[in-house]
Design a binder for these strands. Structure first.
Lengths: 247, 247
DNA sequence: TCAAAAGTGTTGTGTGTACACCCATGT
DNA sequence: ACATGGGTGTACACACAACACTTTTGA
């Protein structure tokens, strides 16, 4: 059982009570904030003002406080960037390549958030020109390993939209079936059949017709629906994989 | 944009170049090691010898070296505990509640490993009596938040066995269809239909019949198969969700 | 009256599920 | 000859995919 001599095993350290003996990495929480706007999936990026990667765009993030839970760090960051809270937030993956930040060792716990298009104008776009929504097919080269993190987030939501109800997190309280279908189409990147789609979501019973319609444009008004599922804000431990009804 | 005054945002810190100003947490990699033995799903646990949680069982883990990638820390830990390398290893989730370790702030990046029953006797059981395989339905109260971590790992493999080929990681190179079915049954916790199971795995084309049979007991010998899929050891970035053929 | 999106059913195809008997071996 | 697990096929139910026309509105 050969030990690396710069690193002590957990069991051993327990003997000595000595946890503070070794150099510690910095830990940040980065958050990929998704929304849908003009039928496109968008991500919020911020422009770096200083070395390293000066003038490159990056995923927002910040240090995790020494007494702060990881989720709260991500929530705080989300609040700082968008002014929003109680949105869908899920831990994505932890990235820790030693050289990912040229300054020092930084391990980042990546989260992603899905926010509804109606709340969206609150902040972010107001804040100078160094914070912007990017359509996911116009993502530039990003700072650090952020392209990789973003790709991973995209994979995750593309997978997860097929067997959970995350799609509703991207819509306002009231929405039409065409809007709902649009969310699926833009995330999956393919057209769906209108009749089959409507049949399925209706028989799953996850939406509720309202006594309202939405009129816009010169055509028949659309029935409005609302989401029946558990409300927008999830409890901490619900990040735990929960396979919902497949759509 | 209200800032917490003990914590600085990433964008701001970039201005000042100052990353080392704040207290840093310790970071560990914990690893849940699964195997199958006597038709039971088992987990490797170690007994703690000191405060905190003295004499409780715990998931093996250790500090992440300051220049060590997270995956390597997990691999190293796995090697220390079992003597094995090149096994299936996947990042699970990162746990960081401030009070999860009473000594100081410790964030743990949890991994899980699946190891094949044939390599299994190499280590671990040789090492005193404070390392043991526990059947997953006889898990005692564990140290730290390790029960939660283990539950999460179980959920993950139960989910993932349905749409990936991780099951093969728990079998030796050569196996019978009954053994393969056993892996599914013990992980899903339910009986499967023999004919349907065999039909499906065969039509997926992920296994290859060998010119060998396995005789044991007083009955007809069983055809041996081997796994066609990508080899046992995965490259780093392949942890990235890869939806394989559903079984 | 025209353009534009909303709304609505049926049929074929494929996939999952339920189910029972013969085979090869060791004792 | 018998006990033990290995091995095989068919029929039914259900889910998914393909597909076109009518309705309601504003201009």
């Amino acid at each position: 059982m050969a030990k690396d001599n710069t690193v002590q095993s957990y069991a051993e350290s327990a003997k000595t009570y000595d946890l503070a003996k070794y150099a510690k990495p910095s830990v940040t929480a980065d958050i990929i904030i998704f929304t849908i706007k003009r039928s496109e999936l968008k991500v919020l990026l911020i422009k770096r003002k200083a070395w390293p990667f000066k003038n490159l765009w990056a995923i927002p993030g910040g240090f995790v406080g020494i007494n702060e839970p990881l989720d709260e760090a991500a929530e705080r960051e989300l609040m700082e960037e968008t002014g929003l809270k109680d949105v869908y937030l899920e831990q994505l993956y932890t990235f820790g390549e030693p050289k990912r930040d040229p300054r020092t060792r930084v391990i980042t716990v990546a989260y992603y958030a899905l926010i509804s298009s109606d709340n969206m104008r609150l902040k972010a776009t107001t804040d100078a020109s160094d914070v912007r929504w990017f359509s996911i097919d116009e993502i530039p080269k990003l700072a650090f390993d952020h392209n990789q993190i973003l790709d991973y987030a995209l994979q995750r939501i593309r997978n997860k939209i097929e067997y959970t109800d995350i799609a509703f997190q991207l819509l306002p309280e009231k929405f039409t079936l065409t809007e709902l279908q649009g969310v699926y189409e833009v995330i999956l990147g393919k057209k769906l059949d209108k009749r089959n789609f409507r049949k399925k979501v209706k028989e799953i019973g996850i939406i509720m017709p309202l006594h309202e319609t939405k009129m816009e444009g010169a055509h028949r008004p659309a029935q409005l629906f609302s989401f029946k599922g558990s409300s927008r804000n999830r409890k901490k431990d619900e990040n735990i994989l929960k396979p919902a009804k497949k759509i």
